[in-house]
Amino acid sequence: MKPTVLLTNDDGVSSAGLWAAYTALSDIADVAVVAPSTQQSAVGRSISIFEPIRVHKVNINGSPAYAVDGKPTDAVIIGLYALKLKPDLVVSGINIGENLSFESIMTSGTVGAALEAANQGTPAVAFSLQVSDQGRKFDDPRSALLEDESIGHIVTDVCSRILDQGFPQECNVLNVNIPSEIRGGYEVTRLAHKLFHTGVEERFDPRGRPYYWIDGPFVEDAEEGTDVHAVRQGRISLTPVTLDCTAPAAFDQVQKQFPYITR
């Protein structure tokens, strides 16, 4: 029997990236698609707890899928607990746009879905594709076609190795970022600090009242060994990520500032 994969994303159930991953995975696994019904980029690990979640069976490109009226994390939870899927692996993506650095993975719905799967006990891989034209991130995701077949081969290769050899120990999520122009092989990386030079642009509506766009250009590069640097060099970044956000290196200083007092 083939292993089973739950496939989700944050660009929505109709995204070309999702279905490129579906095609890549279908040769090696039985794939169930459970994804948000609409675009949900940058929602991180937010969960719908103040409204009901509706699920619709749909058919896209001749294949069945479940469209979830909610966030990527909702889709994972619905797949695991409402649809009672028992996947060997959860795959999130292929996201249109890279998810690199502390900054990006904390807000990414693609990585958020993978973290939620890991939190629920299923290992997960997040795939993201760098795009040279950032406008494509904001286009209809159905139009952002992935013409390069090598991208699908990377998804197949990474997931085949995990399914055959097991998920890396001491790791909850493997964050994979594929450069828009592949000029090298895999590189195991750490997270860079930032992906963007954050800025805010002020504009004015017709009544003269201000409103704001959060924007800012990409960082040009980052130090060697980071995910940002690897992708900028054309290599495929593999970053092991853990759910444990504890900072053990800070224990001594915090204990000195807040000594234990018995009462």
Rank of each mutant, 00 (worst) to 15 (best):
N172G: 08
I47V: 15
V176M: 02
A67E: 09
F258A: 15
T122V: 14
W19V: 11
I96V: 12
I261G: 12
F102P: 02
D205S: 05
Y211C: 05
S150W: 10
T110Y: 00
D139Q: 14
R54Y: 15
P123C: 04
G135M: 12
A65Q: 09
R209T: 08
A20N: 14
V55S: 09
D10E: 10
D74M: 07
D164R: 14
V228F: 02
E170N: 13
L129A: 03
G112I: 06
P179I: 02
D27F: 08
G70M: 06
S104Q: 07
N99A: 07
Q169S: 14
F167P: 04
P52K: 05
V231A: 01
T4W: 11
R142M: 07
D133K: 04
H229F: 14
K84Q: 12
V176Y: 00
V155F: 01
A230I: 00
Q169M: 13
Y81P: 08
P168I: 02
I162T: 08
G135H: 08
N175M: 05
E202V: 11
A75R: 09
D10F: 03
D74S: 09
V131S: 02
M1L: 12
Y212K: 04
E223Y: 03
L89N: 08
A192P: 02
D88A: 13
V155I: 07
R142H: 06
H197T: 11
T73V: 14
S180G: 07
H153S: 15
F258W: 14
Q130W: 00
G12D: 11
E103Y: 00
S15L: 05
P259V: 09
A230F: 00
V131A: 01
Q39I: 07
K194H: 03
V5F: 10
S143A: 13
W19H: 06
A117I: 02
D69L: 11
P64K: 06
I105W: 00
H197I: 10
P210V: 05
A230S: 01
I236M: 03
G62Q: 10
D164Q: 13
L146Q: 06
T246F: 14
P179M: 04
F218M: 07
A16V: 03
F196L: 04
E149T: 15
N9E: 12
A16C: 05
T239Q: 09
N175I: 00
L238V: 05
P64T: 02
N175Y: 02
N59A: 13
P210Y: 06
D69Q: 13
H193Q: 11
E103T: 00
K84V: 09
V155P: 03
S128I: 01
T23A: 12
